[in-house]
Amino acid sequence: MASPLRVVFPIYPGVTQLDFTGPHQFLARLPGAELIVASRGGVPVAADGLTFDGLAVLEEIERCDVICVPGGHGCAEAMADAVYMAAIRRLAAGARFVTSVCTGSLILGAAGLLAGRRAACHWAWRDLLLPFGAVPDPGRVVRDGNILSGGGVTAGIDFALALIAELAGPATAQAIQLGLEYAPAPPFEAGSPQTAPAAVLERVRAVNAAAMPARRAAVERAAERLRAEA
């Protein structure tokens, strides 16, 4: 009997829940897939007003076929967590696909997994990939070798379909898409900096600007740790 395809979502305090629940919903429909949501120590994780419990102990997971690292406001603290980052490196080393959604790619970068590789990220934080030697890519879903990354938050659904197509073929991906009736038709054309009204863009940029100094400092510290370990 073939072993199930093991997909691990390593979550952390301050994760954006849709970054992993979106892909999780689609991958849960993939025949033969075993999905594991894990945290450091298996402790409950609060995310966007929800609490995720019954989590696997990240440090005890021996292997996976796919690791999917979500983003979120807590990614800076996650990058500084030596135990969490060691688990990311260890699982990624044996994974068929190393993946991320949104600012999860910053965590992959901090783990030393993106040097010279193209990667997606949320538009507001994409340039923070540069200190890790990564190549920021504005694509909604970006593949570079076995690295597959989705852009900001909702791109995780598109990313999941692209991943399913790699794992099981386009027909399976399309069947899952149809079963979940994923046919986005947003009421506003405000989903990217290129299409959002100028006033809306400035409003969001102002919110992000307040968080930028701390996040940039966290990235620079993580990049310095990488250089020291090299």
Results as ranks from 00 to 15, higher is better:
residue 122 H to S: 13
residue 186 P to F: 15
residue 154 T to Y: 10
residue 51 T to H: 05
residue 113 L to T: 15
residue 153 V to E: 13
residue 178 L to D: 12
residue 64 C to E: 04
residue 206 A to F: 12
residue 17 Q to S: 13
residue 57 V to W: 00
residue 182 Y to Q: 01
residue 135 V to F: 07
residue 76 A to V: 08
residue 24 H to E: 05
residue 16 T to N: 11
residue 95 A to E: 09
residue 1 M to C: 13
residue 92 A to S: 14
residue 52 F to N: 12
residue 133 G to L: 01
residue 51 T to K: 00
residue 97 F to M: 02
residue 40 R to M: 01
residue 227 R to W: 03
residue 74 G to C: 07
residue 201 L to P: 07
residue 67 I to Q: 05
residue 31 P to Y: 14
residue 205 R to C: 09
residue 17 Q to I: 06
residue 120 A to T: 11
residue 49 G to P: 02
residue 115 A to S: 14
residue 2 A to R: 02
residue 115 A to Y: 10
residue 102 C to G: 15
residue 76 A to K: 01
residue 98 V to R: 05
residue 224 E to N: 11
residue 201 L to N: 14
residue 112 G to K: 01
residue 86 A to Q: 01
residue 185 A to P: 01
residue 66 V to F: 06
residue 189 E to T: 12
residue 73 H to T: 13
residue 148 L to N: 11
residue 40 R to Y: 03
residue 15 V to T: 15
residue 129 L to N: 15
residue 167 L to C: 08
residue 50 L to S: 14
residue 217 A to L: 01
residue 62 E to C: 05
residue 5 L to Y: 09
residue 225 R to H: 08
residue 39 S to H: 06
residue 155 A to E: 13
residue 88 I to G: 12
residue 8 V to S: 08
residue 176 I to G: 09
residue 103 T to P: 00
residue 20 F to C: 08
residue 23 P to Y: 09
residue 145 G to H: 09
residue 98 V to C: 08
residue 92 A to E: 09
residue 67 I to G: 15
residue 3 S to R: 01
residue 106 L to T: 14
residue 51 T to R: 00
residue 87 A to G: 09
residue 7 V to A: 08
residue 29 R to G: 10
residue 32 G to E: 09
residue 53 D to A: 07
residue 160 A to K: 03
residue 135 V to K: 00
residue 133 G to V: 14
residue 90 R to G: 15
residue 54 G to T: 13
residue 127 D to N: 06
residue 119 A to I: 04
residue 92 A to P: 15
residue 160 A to G: 15
residue 169 G to P: 03
residue 120 A to F: 06
residue 31 P to D: 15
residue 201 L to K: 07
residue 42 G to M: 01
residue 158 D to L: 00
residue 25 Q to Y: 12
residue 208 N to Q: 06
residue 14 G to D: 14
residue 76 A to C: 05
residue 191 G to T: 06
residue 200 V to P: 08
residue 195 T to D: 10
residue 151 G to P: 03
residue 61 I to R: 01
residue 43 V to E: 08
